[in-house]
Nucleic acid binder design. Structure first.
Lengths: 156, 156
DNA sequence: CGATAATTGACTATTTTAGTTGGTTAAGTA
DNA sequence: TACTTAACCAACTAAAATAGTCAATTATCG
């Protein structure tokens, strides 16, 4: 699992989507202006997020994007995986010329690390991040408009 | 802490350096041919590794590179940090316009993740990887020439 | 002195990331 | 039906990071 700014953009956008989800879908234009990410780049990212079944696009006026599941079911790992190309860790996978040299050793290390991060991020969901935010709001001076979830949100 | 192929190259090269360290320094040309990394790219990487005091260059015939410390004192984290640009995680650090929005939340997440990986990789040393390799050699069919450390190696 | 190999810097190529442009398609609204 | 909205799509450009090339300098060994 690679960690680049691309995944970070995707997580930011998804978080924005959740935080501003009322019963109506959230448009990419809104997210773009709020998070200062270019609309077209968001389109690329959401194309992948949609294909990974994390979000659902709703066309036409009043349209936008909506989560497919509740935020507690969407892990950070799944978001990052969705936007990144699958990694090619099969360089010396099971080949017969494998000599357990430094290439192989590094491969093992990276695979282990990847698993580790994967494990870590798969246990953190969008809901966790929001809960963390709510915890903080009490102790900080930040005066952000509170997004209330007084009505049950639509998903899928 | 970013995880890219650059750090992976650096770790691979450092591992190769350790595995082929007799009492004489190891040249970049050797590492380049063994690991199929371009010499000039290795030069760039080792320039940084040297500035981070992980290796020491020895000029002239019979020269090459040598570890500064014993392999059990060189963590994977230190290698990756050495070759990567310091990350600019100060986008919304302590600014007054911080609203704990999704940008901030993602920042917190990333910072936490970075710490986590840092912690994980700082506990793995080059010596650990070699030990892992030695464990494996007994159970595999690989017939790599064994690098014996029958003489104490020079460092620094 | 001559060969070796690090050291340095400028420069090029490739890939990834990010953004732009210009459409089409679906759905809601007047 | 016409118009607007906003997803969806594809080709293209720009910027950045990664990877590699080339040429020169410097230290050291024989």
């Amino acid at each position: 699992m690679r960690l680049t700014t691309k995944g970070r953009y995707a997580v930011t956008a998804m978080l924005d989507l959740v935080l501003h989800s009322q019963n109506t879908p959230v448009t990419l234009t809104e997210i773009a202006t709020r998070q200062t990410i270019s609309l077209s780049y968001l389109e690329q990212l959401f194309s992948r997020l949609r294909k990974a079944d994390l979000v659902k696009g709703v066309r036409g006026p009043g349209g936008g994007y909506r989560l497919r599941q509740t935020p507690d079911l969407i892990s950070i790992a799944s978001i990052i995986e969705a936007v990144n190309e699958p990694i090619d860790s099969t360089k010396c996978g099971g080949e017969e010329n494998c000599q357990h040299d430094s290439v192989c050793l590094t491969h093992d290390l990276w695979a282990g690390l990847s698993d580790h991060i994967q494990d870590y991020l798969s246990k953190i969901t969008l809901a966790d991040l929001i809960a963390q935010r709510d915890d903080r709001r009490n102790t900080t001076k930040c005066s952000e408009a509170i997004v209330k979830f007084d009505k049950p949100l639509k998903y899928g």
